[in-house]
Design a protein around this nucleic acid. Structure first.
Lengths: 319, 319
DNA sequence: TTGTATGCGTTATCAT
DNA sequence: ATGATAACGCATACAA
């Protein structure tokens, strides 16, 4: 492996000069520049990027924390981030956490160790207080409403979305409304739970634990939902499902079981994933690609900003 | 930021000793070790990983090249890779190429620059000859049958899979068989095209350009397929679709259009994605998670190995 | 068991 | 415009 020193020798100049042409700095004569260029070509030279990183104290790499990459929500978010990273000449380091705190900590650790310049946490498991400790080591960006906190974030108003879905269903005459979520803990679910409880008390409806179904992430989780529903005495007439993928699964199951949608069970999905368009599932559209782009921009920006993205209810045939 | 030198001073030892306790080397007395540990705690010290990388010449990072992360095929592959990376304490750098050669070259470049120790190329765009040039800079792993070449690979026999799907359909009485692929170029499609042509000539069937539909990656691409199909005079009676996601889209479209499956159109999907189970789509199962794991292991292994994974036809209701 | 000295490959500072 | 040389922070061969 030839290095910058070798180049200097070959070209008959100093390492400084070599570094200058390598980094397109001014103040280097045409002759010397050409000499260096020739040496580079001849030696098949390549920068050792780790040395550059050490010297500069930056890596042009950004970490992305997400629970799993094979879920449309995160896959789309990631796609948006990746697109923007590419345009800005940054690399992405992926942390797939499965919602395990230890893995999120690893990512935070890498920020502290300077292996990544910033960290985008698409869905956090750690308490806010632990994330806070790492704020001084680099930019951290979250995908939730961070209110007065000292971090940038791009988010949608999960509370409002849920409220709107509930209101729509109520207006359609539904009184027994259930919902499916990915995990009970986590900031979004918290907001949804609040919205749900408020909705119930506003309309003096009873709270029914059974109506909340956890661990709904993939198509196949629809089976759990349906099994759960079918054994209930007084099952909900409508379901808010926080992922179109799961909503699609439920629709298909209902077809098999002969349960009419929306007459016997109304469904509102989330995100407006492509399956929702295809299957004509009513859904709360969330601009995931845009959010991904935004998250990335915030990751490389010096300023702390909070950007709320807009959602939109799309009425189709399942409600 | 306190560094190893500061620690040494604080603990009253040499940097070497500090380095030793940092790396859990033997030959350091309890007292000194404790002194160092205390200094670490007190100073809130953290290794600068870039310096470690430079010094060691390795980064414990592995690159992953794939066209897009929001496609079940690649998302699943990635999930398998990520799982294994985690267990082996490696980090993943993601290269989303959109099938653009320049982006694949960037990844190759990073290998050359030593930013990553190895590179896993899930789907390549570059010619083999250009990849070959980078072999000396680190381990490269491919996801295709690499025959006699000097690279490790984990793959399924795309030729055989396609042949088997065709044979099955033929046995069922189909003579006009079309197929949908993600892109016409690329190693897999080449093999499929060969299998297809051989199949046709074996059974003295006519080759019909129209029967091959390109750019089928997502649910929504099913629309293109159907539009294409519906305007044909003599459309195929069966379709091999190299992604269950697209297959699912086609099934749904057919339901809407009143086209009976499998009577009017038989369908064989690929991968046995979860949507295929749910919708009871016949499919060629491919162990993507396993392949991902395998790819990773090969990436960190010294030896060059080729591992063919087994596929399996799962007959359900669409054929 | 411990420490000294050197190397890793760059960039940045400061002369000239 | 050019070049010595000092960082950057750590690992390690070698010496003791």
């Amino acid at each position: 492996m030839t290095n910058i020193k070798d180049l200097a020798k070959m070209a008959g100049v100093s390492v400084t000069t070599v570094s200058r042409v390598l980094n397109n700095h001014p103040y280097v004569s045409k002759e010397k520049r050409n000499a260096v260029l020739a040496a580079i070509k001849e030696s098949n030279y390549e920068q050792n990027i780790n040395a550059v990183h050490l010297s500069k104290g930056k890596t042009q790499m950004i970490g992305v924390v997400l629970p799993f990459s094979d879920h449309p929500y995160f896959a789309l978010l990631l796609k948006g981030i990746a697109k923007q990273a590419l345009e800005n000449n940054y690399k992405l380091v992926l942390f797939q956490t499965d919602y395990m705190e230890s893995r999120e900590l690893e990512a935070l650790q890498m920020l502290k160790q300077k292996q990544i310049d910033s960290l985008i946490i698409c869905s956090r498991t750690c308490e806010w207080s632990v994330i806070q400790e790492y704020l001084s080591y680099g930019t951290i960006v979250l995908c939730e409403d961070t209110k007065g906190k000292e971090v940038s974030s791009t988010f949608v108003n999960q509370y409002k979305i849920f409220k709107e879905a509930l209101a729509f269903l109520y207006k359609k005459g539904h009184q027994r409304i259930g919902y499916c979520i990915g995990r009970k803990t986590g900031p979004s679910s918290q907001l949804r739970a609040n919205a749900y409880k408020e909705f119930l008390s506003e309309h003096q409806l009873p709270y029914c634990e059974e109506y909340i179904i956890d661990h709904c992430n993939y198509f196949e989780d629809a089976k759990i939902v349906m099994d759960h529903l079918l054994q209930m005495d007084n099952r909900p007439t409508a379901l808010i499902v926080t992922s179109d993928q799961v909503a699609a699964g439920i629709v298909i199951y209902c077809q098999k079981q002969g349960i009419k949608i929306p007459e016997e069970l109304a469904i509102i999905g989330y995100h407006n994933e492509s399956i929702a368009k295809l299957m004509e599932i009513s859904t709360m559209e969330i601009p995931l690609l845009e959010m991904g782009k935004n998250l990335f921009q915030q990751a490389i920006s010096k300023e702390i900003t909070k950007e709320e993205m807009f959602f939109r209810f799309i009425e189709r045939t399942t409600v």
